[in-house]
Design a protein around this nucleic acid. Sequence first.
DNA 1: CGGAAATTTGAGCAATTTCAACATGGGTGG
DNA 2: CCACCCATGTTGAAATTGCTCAAATTTCCG
Lengths: 256, 256
Amino acid sequence: MSQRLLINMDQLDIARNISLFSDLTENEKDSLLKEGGIYSYRSKECLFMEGDPIKFLYIVCDGLVQEFRQTADGRELTVNIHKKGDVFCKTEIFLNEGLHNTNAMAIDSAYVMELPIDKFKESLQKHKSVAQRLASSLARFAAMKQIEVEQQATMTSAQILALFLRQTCASHGLDPRGFSLPYKKSLIASRLGMKLETLSRALPKLKEQGITVKGSHVSFTDLKASGLAGLQAAARGNAVKFFPPSRKIREMAHAS
Amino acid sequence: MSQRLLINMDQLDIARNISLFSDLTENEKDSLLKEGGIYSYRSKECLFMEGDPIKFLYIVCDGLVQEFRQTADGRELTVNIHKKGDVFCKTEIFLNEGLHNTNAMAIDSAYVMELPIDKFKESLQKHKSVAQRLASSLARFAAMKQIEVEQQATMTSAQILALFLRQTCASHGLDPRGFSLPYKKSLIASRLGMKLETLSRALPKLKEQGITVKGSHVSFTDLKASGLAGLQAAARGNAVKFFPPSRKIREMAHAS
DNA sequence: CGGAAATTTGAGCAATTTCAACATGGGTGG
DNA sequence: CCACCCATGTTGAAATTGCTCAAATTTCCG
């Protein structure tokens, strides 16, 4: 199924330069990374499926990987789209049963470094910096998901889409004055928890927010805080319903 | 504003028994906890507000604390409701600027142990087990929020509410055959990202799922997998659109 | 140039929100 | 003990928003 991979130093360098390992010495990195291999995946090939045992930490060296879940009602919802330099299955390592609860599939074709988790866990033990950076990354992921919950609850699909486009542009380092979408629209819809039709209908509405989309070509016109305009317009004054923090009387806990 | 607190050993014990510190010796726990104090908060008193500098790790010793955010459009969305034994501001410690991005407010009155973050960070450095448990907890929080995103995208408000009630019942150790709601309905609505009216209208629909709510009294009739019935009914077969995982040809990365 | 996949569009429907009116229910002060 | 009040919750009706289904286009590839 999968293609044989010629060793490609560029791809290995991606793995060497991820921030998770940035405090390791070159030797430490090498001895960890040589435990893993870089694998090549064809378009739509699965890295793992829900219920599979968790064996690796994955580092995307090239291409894109979609991580998604089939929800109870048979829908496919994309948890995340991992791009070059992204590391995934960080969360799962700490979760209970050692089984994947998502599916991962290559979009187009992808090259992925797979690092056995037991080796990775060893390095977590050995190197405090790795553990610390992992925790940061988990915290950031949790905060991101929290914000997504809020967005889904309070924003219209057009607003969510606008934010996603800006964010995508920034995180891929694209030119805000004009770029082409790095993903298919159906993938974006799945990532944003909306239907393709909804996304399609949201696109024209983005003009009001200074985003023009034609086909897969996107350009931001109002380059600064245009995204905020919509939000601010929708904002209403509302009274603060709670007391401000007060001086607290501190009481030592007589431990021991 | 806040009441003076008589030292209460029960409350201190709550803090001593949280799982985050469960691998520490009694001495280690004591020397850490004596750095913090237990504070008393009146109903609706704030522990901190958005934008405040992050100073403490909080451990709820008694009562309830609502953690929430004012969204851009002026709505109030509850991130989490912390109950006795819960620890919060774990995530924030790892995030950038050292400022709170949520508000925390006592519901009714609450007793909260506040542990200076620099002291807590020291113990993270000193005790691997604390760091490990913190990471687990972050991972679990992230997974929970991910599931919430999915629920909001795929489930009806009645289903979401049903899940929340079951979960609440379990996590508070209440009797599923009949208990009263530990929170006000408006708080629940805010927690679930829906309007109070929507929640109110969803309540009668829960009967179909074997949950009876009258006033603030809840009882589960169909005690087993009743919650799944609705989901399964809504489920439809849909074809698998991707390839199963293939054998991969492994290629050693010639690191170094 | 086909044909399949991806996207767009239309029309009707379902769920949630909004706004407004109404009910309930503790608690307080007389 | 009761009348009253304010916070909380419920209900109705209209308006939004997103979803479903179906058909029409467009795009992508060989």
